[in-house]
């Protein structure tokens, strides 16, 4: 399976993260998105006329939507990430998968503007991002009341992976995560999963490893 990948793209990171969590080995084909704009070049436009990355290629199958890629990886290697199939759970997964596109448009747009100087109405992008974060915070809080730590049930699904990257990287676009305690707990739960991988802007949870040496006054 080949992923056309940009190391700073949260959408590409969704696919890398899902692959790591589900034990799928990807062949990474780096794309010079910035500064080279290779995703708009002839080779990649032939593969994806939409001009976006990531692109996932597996034999005859070419996927250009990250949510579909998450579904594909999970179906192939880790079906538990698709939920139990219970109607309400299935609906919640679809609900948050669709919602994740609002995160991409708002927080992702703000990030591209603030970091890589892409054009955009930064005030509107940030305001829409904050509105989306508030919805996510409320949704996660209600799930917590129902005894569920994640968006669709009490275990993570592709819906969590679809929402996590743009949320975790919101500060890159000048949107603070300080006001969202439930998002912090959720994000922390995802980052603590076995085989979790980071991307630039999401640092390592060093506390998951023990202190390498005792503090001098405890020695």
């Amino acid at each position: 399976m080949r992923l056309y990948d940009y190391v700073l793209s949260p959408s590409c990171y969704k696919v890398r993260l899902m692959a790591a969590l589900s034990g799928v080995k990807l062949e990474i084909r780096p794309v010079d998105f910035h500064p080279g704009a290779e995703h708009r070049g002839p080779e990649l436009m032939a593969l994806n006329p939409g001009g976006s990355i990531p692109i996932l290629e597996d034999g005859d199958l070419i996927l250009t939507e990250s949510s579909a890629m998450l579904g594909y990886l999970a179906a192939k290697a880790a079906p538990a990430w698709l939920g139990s199939g219970a109607p309400e759970e299935t609906a919640r997964i679809q609900q948050w998968l669709s919602f994740s596109h609002r995160l991409t448009a708002s927080l992702g747009g703000a990030r591209l503007h603030e970091m890589l100087l892409r054009p955009g109405d930064i005030g509107a992008l940030q305001a829409n991002g904050i509105a989306a974060l508030r919805e996510l915070e409320a949704g996660l809080f209600e799930q917590k009341m129902r005894g569920n730590r994640f968006l669709a049930c009490d275990r993570p699904t592709i819906a969590d992976i679809a929402c996590f990257p743009y949320v975790a990287l919101a500060p890159d676009g000048g949107v603070s995560l300080d006001p969202y305690p439930t998002i912090r707990l959720w994000s922390r739960a995802l980052r603590s999963l076995d085989n979790f991988i980071e991307m630039p802007g999401i640092h390592r949870l060093h506390e998951l490893k023990p202190e390498p040496r005792p503090c001098p006054d405890e020695a």
């Binding site: 190391v7 700073l8 970091m115 500060p171 890159d172 630039p200 802007g201 640092h203």
Partner: peptide, 10 residues
């Protein structure tokens, strides 16, 4: 190099 610098940016 972008990976390294974006880790610093945060």
């Amino acid at each position: 190099q972008q990976t390294i610098f974006l880790q610093d940016r945060s």
